Amino acid sequence: MSSRKGGLPEAPSKEDLEAMSEFRYRLRRFLRFSEEVTHAAGVTPLQYQLMLQVRGFPGRSWATVGELAERLQAAPNGTAALVSRCEAADLVFRKPGEVDRRQVQVHLTVKGDRCLLELAALHKPEIESFGWAFGKTTE
């Protein structure tokens, strides 16, 4: 959208509103699907999201609590509590950093990795239905 005088955004057209409505509908449908399959697997949607961010962190298969907080758009203390709950469920473990031992790395356990891969396999077709994911387009 372009700007009007004074820096205010231009009012959306009917087509813009329809596209926004369709996007929000598809997003909500996806989130509901995700809630249902994660609960059926015995984990919460947040636990799944944390495991996905740990394993899917760019360039490596672990992340720090601070990095996870950013990726989840959550407060660091809330993310640390989520890591603790995932640790109690044997989904992740903490490990001191090799270079800086004050830096704590979060890694998936074997159980967490297996759970993540099963859930990700269920999520992938749903994400692909958005049309832009994984370099594919949908007609």
Rank of each mutant, 00 (worst) to 15 (best):
Arg71Thr: 01
Ala63Arg: 03
Leu91Asp: 01
Ala88Phe: 04
Arg60Val: 08
Leu31Asp: 08
Pro12Thr: 11
Ala133Lys: 03
Phe33Tyr: 10
Arg71Ala: 10
Glu128His: 00
Pro9His: 10
Ser13Cys: 08
Phe93Gln: 04
Glu18Tyr: 14
Lys14Tyr: 13
Tyr25Trp: 11
Ala120Asp: 13
Glu139Met: 09
Leu68Ser: 03
Arg114Ala: 13
Asp90Val: 04
Leu27Lys: 10
Ala63Cys: 14
Pro9Ile: 08
Ser129Val: 01
Leu31Met: 08
Arg29Ser: 15
Val37Tyr: 06
Leu119Phe: 07
Cys115Gly: 02
Gly7Arg: 12
Pro76Tyr: 08
Asp100His: 04
Thr44Val: 07
Thr64His: 03
Lys124Asn: 11
Tyr25Leu: 15
Ala81His: 12
Ser13Thr: 13
Gly59Leu: 10
Met20Gly: 11
Ala40Gln: 12
Pro58Cys: 05
Met51Phe: 11
Arg94Tyr: 03
Cys115Trp: 02
Asp113Thr: 14
Ser61Met: 11
Leu117Gln: 11
Gln49Arg: 15
Val106Ile: 01
Val92Arg: 00
Phe134Val: 01
Val110Cys: 05
Gln53Arg: 13
Trp132His: 05
Glu87Leu: 06
Gln49Asp: 15
Ala80Val: 07
Ala63Glu: 06
Val106Cys: 00
Glu126Thr: 01
Gly78Ile: 10
Leu119Gln: 07
Ser129Cys: 02
Asp113Gly: 15
Glu36Ala: 09
Glu10Ser: 13
Gly78Asp: 13
Ala69His: 06
Ala75Thr: 10
Ala40Ser: 13
Ala74Leu: 11
Leu108Asp: 05
Ala89Asn: 04
Arg85Asn: 06
Ser34Leu: 13
Glu36His: 08
Gln103Ser: 08
Gly7Ser: 10
Phe57Glu: 08
Cys115Val: 09
Arg4Pro: 01
His39Met: 12
Phe33Leu: 06
Glu128Trp: 01
Arg4Gln: 12
His39Asn: 11
His39Arg: 15
Glu139Leu: 15
Thr44Leu: 06
Glu67Trp: 05
Arg94His: 01
Thr64Ala: 07
Val99Lys: 09
Ser13Trp: 07
